[in-house]
């Protein structure tokens, strides 16, 4: 697995030269801060904006620390965060195919499997770093502004949520292998991910097979300390799909004729 470490080193260098290593965590940090802050200061913000009109009286619900963390995941990470992950990953395989670097790598001793694994691990690590940073920041702010949420719950929720992120990364990698334009990769990946996400709102039995449902599990873990029923099924289906996507990428690329330059 010597080639893999060479390829990973390259991914790392590329991510730092393109500042991905910087802006990915920064975006998620921002997303992590915004939910606790805006929930906390909402009353003041409303007042500053001129207050509520006469006669209108909405009782702002009592928000708990757990609720804030849950909304960070569902409202921030799963929306803007998802977009950022797809946009940030959309050209990872496509550009190598386009400019012939993939051919260069494969005409050396590295195998296609090593190449794909290098990409996958590299991107997964970047996303892991970013999501974890964002989540910890959110936890920190929440604990400061509201009340302390046990770190173990945050970490457990984060782990479950990250599996869903891994699904996003792998789907984008698969689309990068199948398609030849980054814009196409982004559109198709976003379409699938948003579709799955919207489907979680429909409820019903399909949920337990839906990778996007992992977000709900993660939220439940953070709020109550335990996942929703059938968590194992959802997790297993997601992991299975991830493996299938990786195999499909390999299968398709190994059959495709690569441009020579």
């Amino acid at each position: 697995m010597n080639h893999l470490s060479v390829l990973l080193k390259k991914e790392w260098l590329e991510a730092s030269r393109s500042y991905k290593l910087l802006w990915f965590p920064v975006v998620f940090m921002f997303l992590g801060i915004i939910q606790p802050l805006s929930s906390y200061y909402l009353p003041q913000i409303l007042e500053l904006a001129g207050g509520l009109p006469e006669g209108v009286n909405i009782a702002l619900p009592q928000i708990t620390a757990e609720d804030v963390l849950a909304s960070t995941v569902t409202n921030q990470f799963d929306q803007l965060g998802l977009l950022v992950i797809v946009i940030g990953m959309m050209s990872i395989v496509v550009s190598d195919k386009d400019n012939g670097m993939l051919t260069f790598i494969l005409t050396r001793n590295a195998s296609l499997g090593e190449y794909l694994l290098g990409k996958w691990i590299g991107q997964a690590a970047i996303v892991a770093g970013a999501v974890a940073t964002g989540m910890l920041i959110a936890g920190l702010y929440t604990s400061y502004l509201y009340s302390f949420v046990p770190l173990s719950r945050i970490v457990a929720g984060l782990g479950v949520y990250y599996t869903w992120c891994l699904f996003m990364v792998t789907l984008t990698l698969l689309m990068g292998s199948l398609l030849s334009r980054s814009s196409g990769v982004a559109v198709v990946s976003l379409f699938v991910l948003i579709f799955l996400k919207v489907a979680t709102a429909l409820g019903s039995g399909f949920q337990i097979m839906n990778p996007a449902h992992l977000t709900n599990h993660a939220v439940h873990i953070m709020i109550s300390g335990s996942a929703l029923p059938h968590f194992m099924t959802t997790a297993a289906v997601t992991l299975l799909l991830i493996v299938v996507f990786l195999i499909l990428s390999h299968f398709y690329l190994s059959r495709k004729e690569l441009p020579a330059s």
Partner: peptide, 12 residues
């Protein structure tokens, strides 16, 4: 092997 239009990673 040297391809017809080599483009390497420009950031390297």
């Amino acid at each position: 092997y040297l391809p017809q239009h080599p483009t390497f990673y420009s950031w390297m």
